[in-house]
Design a binder for these strands. Structure first.
Length: 349
DNA sequence: AATACGGGGAA
DNA sequence: TTCCCAGTATT
């Protein structure tokens, strides 16, 4: 008899045929080295393809192999990551690569669970590496895939919830084409990026048109259901521009959660002048004298907004820079974006 | 189950 | 402005 899943497997064939024809060219497509696929997947976490490409190219040029990355200092890795955001990704990629290199003799994990146990690798990335790098039938549910499948199947559960994503994994698991696992995963994501857009999806051009619940029920705009994120919290900062011998005083953000391990300008919460000078002393162990306010700068993160007042200030004459501090011409030029913006705005090169 | 964690592009 | 992007770790 005709298998009753003819219609159901048909959608995967349509999807793959569309993918063969429409897929975009990307630097990591066609790569065999799991390390390079890995780098691309980590960079692409919460990051658009176009944004990641230049970083990927520079990163691979600088760290062509897993061994190159494992043997490099973390400062170099963060320097290559600077500007891409979510810097924990770079740090944890470096850690995980060192685990593979030093503890597993350079042998990549072979199972989903083994990938998952590495720092910086969650269910999505583990699935992506299993399917794309190792061609195993293992689902990888990112934002694209969640949107595509919630529309295709008419799933009205909140796709930001873990349980919903696991349900989608379970759904996909039964449709993996055994010989094209990596393409199947990539095709789902490509469809989400090219056709099944969040807003104004191109249903008329979609290879799944006619098979898709949302398309049949005109429910594209209602799906997927996701709870909205809380908005950014505003913070008022005083940022200090302290010139010493034509350079600028910088501090390490080693113990900060945000922009951790980068260098930045010293900063304290806005208060009265005397209170800020005191706060500076508490925080940095240096006596400072505020000269004048010289400008303002706004910097917006996804979860936080910095309103920065820029103060020209002078260190106490007898003060010596602590060893972990530095000036702009020292060897610590891995300066975080917001401070680069200030330094460039105020013409300090 | 929430929240922290970056930056950029699109409407 | 708001949303969202080839998410993960922590609380």
């Amino acid at each position: 008899m005709m298998k009753n899943n003819k219609i159901e497997t048909d959608w995967t064939q349509r999807l793959l045929q569309w993918f063969d024809k429409a897929k975009r060219s990307m630097p990591w497509r066609g790569e065999n080295d799991p390390y390079r696929i890995w780098v691309s997947e980590v960079m692409l976490q919460q990051t658009r393809v176009e944004q990641a490409i230049p970083f990927y190219l520079r990163f691979i040029e600088r760290f062509p192999s897993l061994e190159d990355l494992a043997l490099s200092p973390i400062e170099d890795v963060l320097n290559a990551w600077n500007g891409l955001g979510y810097y924990r990704r770079g740090k944890q990629l470096h850690q995980a690569v060192q685990i593979i290199y030093y503890e597993h003799k350079g042998v990549f994990p072979k199972s989903f669970e083994d990938w998952l146990s590495l720092p910086g690798i969650g269910r999505y990335t583990a699935g992506a590496l299993m399917s794309i790098a190792l061609d195993k039938p293992c689902p990888a549910v990112d934002g694209n895939v969640a949107r595509v499948i919630s529309r295709f199947k008419g799933i009205r559960d909140d796709v930001t919830k873990d349980i919903t994503k696991k349900n989608i994994e379970g759904f996909l698991q039964q449709y993996f084409p055994v010989d094209r696992c990596g393409d199947f995963t990539q095709a789902l994501m490509e469809l989400g990026a090219m056709m099944c857009l969040s807003k104004n999806p191109k249903c008329l051009l979609c290879p799944l048109t006619g098979l898709c619940f949302a398309n049949l029920h005109q429910a594209q705009e209602e799906l997927p259901v996701k709870k909205k994120k809380s908005s950014a919290i505003k913070e008022e900062w005083a940022v200090f521009l302290i010139e010493t011998l034509n350079t600028v005083y910088l501090v390490s953000r080693k113990n900060e959660a945000l922009l951790s391990d980068f260098w930045g300008l010293p900063m304290v919460y806005i208060e009265k002048t005397s209170a800020m000078e005191k706060a500076f002393k508490e925080k940095y162990g240096q006596s400072v004298k505020i000269v004048q306010k010289i400008g303002e700068m706004r910097y917006v993160f996804s979860h936080r907004e910095w309103n920065m007042s820029i103060y020209q200030a002078k260190l106490n004459k007898t003060a010596r820079l602590l060893k972990e501090d530095c000036t702009y011409d020292d060897d610590c030029k891995n300066i975080a974006k917001p401070f680069q913006k200030i330094l460039s705005e105020f013409k300090i090169e």
